[in-house]
Simulated assay, not measured.
Amino acid sequence: MASNLETLVTVFGGSGFLGRNVVRALAKREYRIRVAVRRPELAGHLQPLGRVGQIHAVQANLRYPASVEAAMRDSQVAINLVGTLAESGAQTFDAVQAKGAETVAKAAAAAGARMVHVSAIGTDENSPSGYGRSKASGEKAVLAAVPSATILRPSVVFGPEDQFTNRFAALARISPFLPLIGGGVTRMQPVYVGDVATAVANAVDGKTASGATYELGGPEVLTMREIMEVILAITGRKRMLISLPWGLAKMQAMFLQFAPGMLKLTPDQVMMLQSDNVVSDAAKSAGLTLAGLGITPESMQAIAPQYLWRFRAAGQFQRMSV
């Protein structure tokens, strides 16, 4: 482990949901960590994840290349976790996920650093969704600048601070029904945030194939309906699941894209839901998966009760019917 103390890893987007888990995984492996974020004063929660002086936050914005270059100075590894599920002001898909990824990759190349880039399953330059297309542009730019880069594509990520299971559990607390967009038949492979973080740390350790793209999915493929049923079972709520046809969902999203918090739904997100979000057969046969990295993925049923209990009517000690 002593050699890792010599390695400085710069994590772009390290204060978010996936970021804090990546920082924790790297800290355990004794790396020195520089967290590059837009608001370093809001990254104080990362400090207890490592030893004194091990984790240091700096200001960087992917739209300003000079700040990215400064954040990469003397760093041996760059990790890019920056992404957005919904556009907001200057934070467009293209600015953040395409040009932003390219800016980090160019800075990594200039510093002679290795690179780990977190993308997403569903990335496709011909995707009907702007999210999918911008992710594809980002991957292409990363490999052009750093051909040896490792690209990790997770399916939908769950964990204590996620915007996925928590969102539907919160919705179930206030609504008598939950909507199933397109009938809830879209298939997903929910992956635990801790497993994705371990995959990132393994890539930093040099355990991934040079220039390879890995697809990260959990142990089960579930439809959106099945995911909702799991969340309702864990939280002890009985709610109607109502099918929402694609056309109606798109119309609603035109208005809900301006809604706050858990009610927000954009037309682009509806587009994304029209395609399954699962690990491809090609990735499985090539060993470019969590299993290929020696990671046994955790299931949603095993992990989610540890944090969704707070959505139960009587809290942590509510008796659950078996």
Rank of each mutant, 00 (worst) to 15 (best):
A199D: 07
K238W: 03
V193C: 10
G218P: 10
V204R: 05
A201W: 06
V230W: 00
Y192D: 06
V230R: 04
E229W: 05
A201V: 10
V230L: 14
V193W: 03
T198R: 12
V200W: 09
A212Q: 14
S210R: 12
E229K: 14
T198E: 15
K238A: 08
G211W: 09
R237L: 11
V200C: 14
Y192M: 10
R225Y: 02
T223F: 05
G236T: 07
I234C: 10
K207S: 06
Y192K: 01
S243G: 15
A197R: 00
S210V: 03
G217V: 09
Y214C: 11
L241I: 08
E229G: 09
A199T: 09
Y214I: 12
P190A: 11
P245Y: 14
V230G: 00
V221G: 11
D195K: 01
L216W: 00
V191M: 09
Q189H: 14
D205V: 07
G206I: 05
G206A: 13
A209R: 15
G236H: 12
A199H: 04
R237K: 15
A233Y: 14
E215R: 04
M228R: 00
I234Q: 08
L222V: 07
P245K: 13
P219Q: 07
E226A: 15
V221M: 13
D205N: 13
T213S: 15
N202G: 08
E215N: 09
Y214W: 14
E215H: 01
I234F: 14
R239L: 07
M240C: 05
Y214E: 07
M224Q: 04
A233H: 11
V200K: 12
A203L: 03
I234V: 15
V196C: 08
V221A: 06
G217L: 12
E226L: 08
T208L: 08
E220W: 04
G211Q: 13
A209P: 05
K238T: 14
T223L: 11
V193M: 11
S243V: 01
M228L: 15
L216D: 04
G211L: 12
Y192P: 01
P219F: 04
L244M: 11
S210W: 03
T213V: 15
P245L: 08
V221P: 06
E220R: 13
R237P: 01
P219I: 04
P190V: 04
Y192F: 15
M224P: 01
I234K: 03
P245F: 13
E220V: 05
M228T: 02
E220F: 07
V204Y: 11
E215L: 06
